[in-house]
């Protein structure tokens, strides 16, 4: 088991119980001034950080909840929330 993920309901579990939900891109862009270009970028473009990034995961084989974690994409391990995001 290479990756473990901490579900807020069930606790630390085998990574195979979860499904990746993509990078956390923050809130939806404001719709008043939204252009097709801006929406396309929000939906399709990713940062693909080599390091710690905030991600969405769903506990598909467990409680079914959606939540965010911070994961080091180089080491493929869950890490604590970085000081800068607190």
């Amino acid at each position: 088991m290479s990756l473990t993920i901490t579900c807020p309901i069930c606790g630390k579990r085998n990574g195979y119980e979860f499904r990746f939900g993509g990078e956390d891109k923050g809130p939806r862009p404001d719709e008043d001034s939204l252009t097709p270009q801006r929406w396309c970028e929000y939906v399709h473009l990713n940062e693909c950080v080599a390091g710690v990034q905030k991600e969405w995961w769903v506990h598909k084989d467990g409680c079914g909840s959606w939540f965010t974690i911070h994961r080091d994409t180089v080491m493929n391990v869950e890490v604590a929330k970085p000081e800068a995001d607190r």
């Binding site: 309901i9 579990r13 467990g62 409680c63 079914g64």
Partner: peptide, 10 residues
């Protein structure tokens, strides 16, 4: 309670 897979079944 555990909510998790047994025999690969949720």
């Amino acid at each position: 309670l555990y909510q998790g897979p047994m025999s690969h079944i949720p």
